[in-house]
Design a protein around this nucleic acid. Sequence first.
DNA 1: CCTCCACAGGAACTGATGGCGT
DNA 2: ACGCCATCAGTTCCTGTGGAGG
Length: 414
Amino acid sequence: MDREETLVCGLMVKDPIDKLLDDATSGKSLFKNREVLHFTFMPELVLHRDDEQKKVTQALIPLLKKARPSNLLVYGKPGTGKTLVVKKVLNKIQEKVKDGSFPIQLLYANAKEETTLYGLLIKLGRQLIEKGREKEFPTTGLSISEVFNRIVSAIEKNGLNTVFVIDEIDYLAELVSKTGKDVFYSLTRANERLKKGSLTLIGISNDLTFKERLDPRVLSSLSEEEIVFTNYTVNQIKEILTERIKEAFIPNVLDPAALNLCAAMSGQEHGDARRAIDLLRVAGEIAEREQSDMIKEDHIRRASLKMEEDKETTALTSYPLHEKLLILAVMKANGNSTGEIYQSYKSLCKTTRQKDLTQRRVTQMLSEIEMTGLISGKIVHQGMHGRTKKFALTLNPDTVKKAFKEDLVLEDLL
DNA sequence: CCTCCACAGGAACTGATGGCGT
DNA sequence: ACGCCATCAGTTCCTGTGGAGG
């Protein structure tokens, strides 16, 4: 759409919302199909993963022969297509047996998304039963072993052959160690309890050292088969992107230099294809909003910045009050030790009329914030003056101020 | 070589919340 | 109505520690 027309529309429409909406619908889109650049999209072919696909399939083939397949452990850095390959293979298997008398049930859960062990089991359990019967797996109230029993009896009742896919299974290991409940063990041994049906476990992990922290009894049954996904090279990422671009965008909207940059930016470090795809989508959105008819290098760079900033802002705004106060305290006493930050935090509490928390709790919160990367801490030994940790803000103070503006309690501090 | 600082960070506990089965 | 269970935020108590200064 050309400028004049936009202007005319703008003049005719009174409501600014209408104008925006009109622009959005009438303006031409660079996208043919946005979904292709979304992480849930399942491509026809998964490039550069032939070997891995073969191995996953082989491990699961016994399902077709009505036997219990091997449990499977899949390793690989983020964005190496682990989840994609596993889901793809399982989808195909399900298609193959669809009309047979041999029901295969697929259960997927991401351990990182569920904060608790209980939540994870409920999520899995609910996929086992028909819609409307969710009450059998309530969000709270039961004991973990009760939930587990219900899962097992649901499998048995329908004689299902279930495949549990647990993404980011290393987080589950963490949850388990917190509660002391040995769910892994029960899960891997569930087959012995089942008279009908079966249970196969597929664990997906980013952390290659995760295995070492596992109980050896569990390990032996869980890692009957192991598959390691290697990182993509920059060239491979480029090919993957090219493939998706064909589907996602209308022809010739992507500057080749932008493609190179996109592949290089996310590829160089980790070989993370998912990030590359995200980057492309965001860059496309930025270009589209500007009514640009081509995606250039500059759009990729700005997309990268935007993604970084968005991540920071959402992290900042979603923190509870005391974490926010602490971040402000770190800001005020940038580069200072825990003790000084604690003093600063206490005075902030006073001015905002909040009850201050103990130093123990504060150190814990600081290291939690440190984990997200918003602040960085360094342990410093000062000889006679003891040991402490010095914290510094890793992001722009203005970003923090902008993010905290909304918070009524913090209003007058800024 | 010893001392002693200023915390780090683990473990165990408390009280509140919300919802279960019986 | 009752006891039980998991979880969360927070507290109390604790042991551990590298190296400057004596």
